[in-house]
Design a protein around this nucleic acid. Structure first.
Lengths: 216, 216
DNA sequence: TAGATTGTTAATCGATTAACAATC
DNA sequence: TAGATTGTTAATCGATTAACAATC
């Protein structure tokens, strides 16, 4: 079976696709089989042309008058985001945030499967958190190879983040998802994605301040 | 003292400012008093002109040849993001993620202070999580007024998120920080910021897939 | 001074939005 | 058919990047 070559899309598109997907899941649950870009746009306070442009990247074709088949669209977006196949992951830093990540039920939907956690705390090593075994840091290189882990999640404190990152890189991790509020240095070829709550909070608290200022 | 009116900035700028701030904290800890846009750009793999443009929004003025005073810049960014003043918050949904949020030590730096958590689980109501008391949902309107809470964090499951959101809005919450993977409807005037891990993961897993495709 | 840096204007780039023929 | 929608080209918008005079 010829698999269509996945080409890259602009980041804004990549960030919007999960929003469409969540809406489509709701529609499917409601037994709705077809959906138009107009409807998606009005539900998400977006623009119909933008929705169509975004959908185009997934190589799906719609039908004039009726729109897109919900089931087809779901599958196309899942394939495009690579959420249809398993993405084995490890996590470094089994603290509050790390524990929450290991127990987050939605990751399975996104193909992300945690096989191992790593921590430097002796008391945690050898235990299981949400059914995932915790290992000592030095076990990482071996387990990455044995279990074909390609994604590493960093939930250690800032001051240990670069060290954890370096260990992941030297272990053979291909993509790093960083939750520590610090800029990590990675070699070319390793993909780094920062998910920093501080960025999101900055937008919210600044907007709140502007709003307060406007009502003075 | 005349306080400069805070004007809005583009979202990309707002998202970059915390990155500068984290670097500046590191510099301050290292005893460095001055920094140039060139240096910040090279450290963060960014562009010096962009750094200067971003900094301009904070109304700080630099010095030719030497750059900016680290201490001044830190304060200006903190003021601009409104991280210098207290932002009282509540959280709805004291599960795995909610518990992690309540215990996240960095929020204090960003001015975010949790005064109350809300949950529908009888067993959690009346207890404390990371020193923050857990109330029943129906107590929300009264506590928001009494404690002047203006920010609400949503960490409930998707199917309960809109309900939690509506309760926050009717209680008088001005800004909502949503972690549920669903599109929330809020009235005009209420600020909604989505911090959805799925968006960040979409970027990472798609890039990983493209990289894999390129090496076939 | 010479040279590094800022502040700012102009040029470029890329994403969003508008317009509309093709389709069913 | 009439009318709603797609797919796509063109126009607009806004952010990024380049260029450079002013500054110390």
């Amino acid at each position: 079976m010829a698999r269509t070559r996945i080409v890259s899309a602009p980041e804004p598109t990549l960030r919007r696709l999960p929003r469409y997907l969540h809406l489509l899941y709701t529609l499917r649950t409601g037994g709705i089989a077809e959906v138009s870009s107009t409807f998606i746009a009005s539900e998400l306070h977006s623009d119909a042309t933008q929705v169509r442009k975004d959908i185009e990247f997934t190589n799906i074709v719609g039908h004039p008058k009726t729109g897109y088949i919900v089931e087809e669209l779901i599958e196309a977006i899942e394939v495009f985001l690579s959420w249809d196949s398993k993405n084995y992951a490890l996590l470094a830093g089994a603290g509050n945030l790390g524990t929450a990540m290991l127990g987050y039920p939605n990751f399975k939907k996104y193909g992300l499967i945690f096989l191992a956690a790593f921590d430097s705390d002796e008391k945690k090593i050898g235990t299981k958190i949400h059914d995932i075994p915790v290992f000592k840091m030095s076990d990482m290189p071996q387990l990455v190879k044995e279990w074909h882990i390609q994604t590493g999640v960093i939930t250690v404190p800032s001051q240990n983040a670069q060290q954890a990152c370096d260990l992941m890189v030297s272990s053979g991790i291909r993509g790093i998802w960083n939750f520590a509020p610090i800029h990590l240095k990675v070699p070319a070829g390793v993909i780094l994605e920062n998910s920093q709550v501080s960025q999101s909070l900055a937008v919210l608290s600044h907007k709140l301040a502007v709003q307060r200022g406007n009502r003075l």
